[in-house]
Design a protein around this nucleic acid. Structure first.
Lengths: 219, 219
DNA sequence: ATTTATTTTTAGGTTTGTCTAAATTTATTT
DNA sequence: AAATAAATTTAGACAAACCTAAAAATAAAT
């Protein structure tokens, strides 16, 4: 099994994430994601191409090869398992763990991640609601719907927040919304797309369409 | 607070360990410990000298400065806390964890190590019996005696194995001796320094002086 | 279809941490 | 005390991963 440097792993992981949204990845996009200059991306692409990790032709957009995908999923699995550990065992808050997991995801021992997975009892979702790939790279995708598309009057559990900015977190805190919160949509106003929601004992609240589109639930 | 690279941390840690045995450290000793050539050690010493981590004059043996000591203890603390975690939470065997902890010890977050320490309930000794420095770098040294010096007929608990080679581990396994094993020395033969020991329900056994000197206990 | 703008690549340089081989210093022997 | 041996340092190189600035290719706009 080939070994990859921390830099290589970060590039591979970032390409994977960018592919989720854009299908195909450009050098500039990637340079922003890994926080380097476009020239450095070219250097790395040539190296990853030699190692058959990316499908790459000069001046063209690129994608991961099958082996590349596999490596990305392994790194993402490690990242999310560690996040789960940090929150559910060490008591971190879900918005504190990303940076730490960025380091832990590069610890190489497979025995370690295997045992950690056992210890955590094979969780399928990390504290942000993102799915954790299993040891074969399989990810459990259950259909999440945002508040703009959720059927009325039916209770659902918040599973994922798309925009995870500080501003959004502040707003969610104010409305007592977090991963796992059970709520239902009472009414949806066609005029501006805003939704009225109800959480257990709290008074009803109204969220703008912009916010509603960022809050995902599973029914 | 200054940041140090993984290489720097490894050099600092190794100097600390070598100082425990030799007071003063030579370039060759260090080069063996960090698995590089003497010339590389010189390069690193110059860098660490600039950062006021080592007391170093060209061609002379060297030691850590006070700040250097502090950093070494932080790395060692992390290493041993992770080893404790790997054995007592993830179920690794004590001879499997060193390599993994060599990677984990370089994770930088102090909040992480603080929380890990809380989670493990502030252990004072790692699975090998080595003391874990507390957050201020204090290490609990309780007087350990090897089997060659232990008073006769008094039960004691094995706390530390000096020679941790595979050969020694094999021998210990055969005699059912591990960290925590309760035993007493029945008799000591002056002729060759060998000792007769008794462990709970097992038959008495005789260990050579060479072995006895490597097994440490606390009464 | 040219021109202009954007993106990507090349060329050459820097830093970190390593190396080998030669030179220098310290230690050991005779 | 001089000669030899051992340890340490210097000098010059290399690989990885980054950079800047200029050149080349592609995309967009007139």
């Amino acid at each position: 099994m080939l070994k990859f440097s921390i830099s290589e792993e970060n590039y591979i992981k970032s390409i994977f994430h960018l592919q989720e949204m854009h299908d195909t990845v450009s050098a500039t996009m990637l340079s922003l994601a890994v926080n380097t200059k476009a020239a450095s991306v070219t250097d790395m692409l040539k190296k990853l191409h030699l190692k058959k990790i990316v499908n790459y032709r000069p001046y063209k957009n690129f994608t991961l090869t099958e082996p590349g995908n596999k490596i990305a999923l392994e790194v993402i699995r490690k990242h999310r398992l560690w996040e789960y550990f940090l929150v559910n065992k060490l008591g971190f808050k879900w918005d504190e763990v990303h940076v730490i997991a960025e380091e832990l995801e590069h610890i190489s021992s497979t025995a370690l991640i295997q045992r950690l997975d056992d210890y955590l009892e094979h969780p399928c979702f990390d504290p942000h609601g993102d799915p954790i790939p299993d040891k074969h790279g399989k990810i459990k995708t259950l259909k999440q719907t945002n508040l703009a598309g959720l059927p009325l009057k039916k209770f659902a559990a918040v599973s994922y927040i798309k925009d995870q900015s500080v501003q959004m977190l502040e707003l969610l805190k104010h409305y007592h919304i977090s991963i796992g919160t059970k709520l239902r949509v009472n009414k949806r106003f066609v005029f501006d797309g805003s939704v009225e929601i109800k959480i257990d004992k709290l008074p009803v609240a109204v969220l703008s369409e912009q916010v509603a589109k960022n809050i995902f639930c599973i029914a």
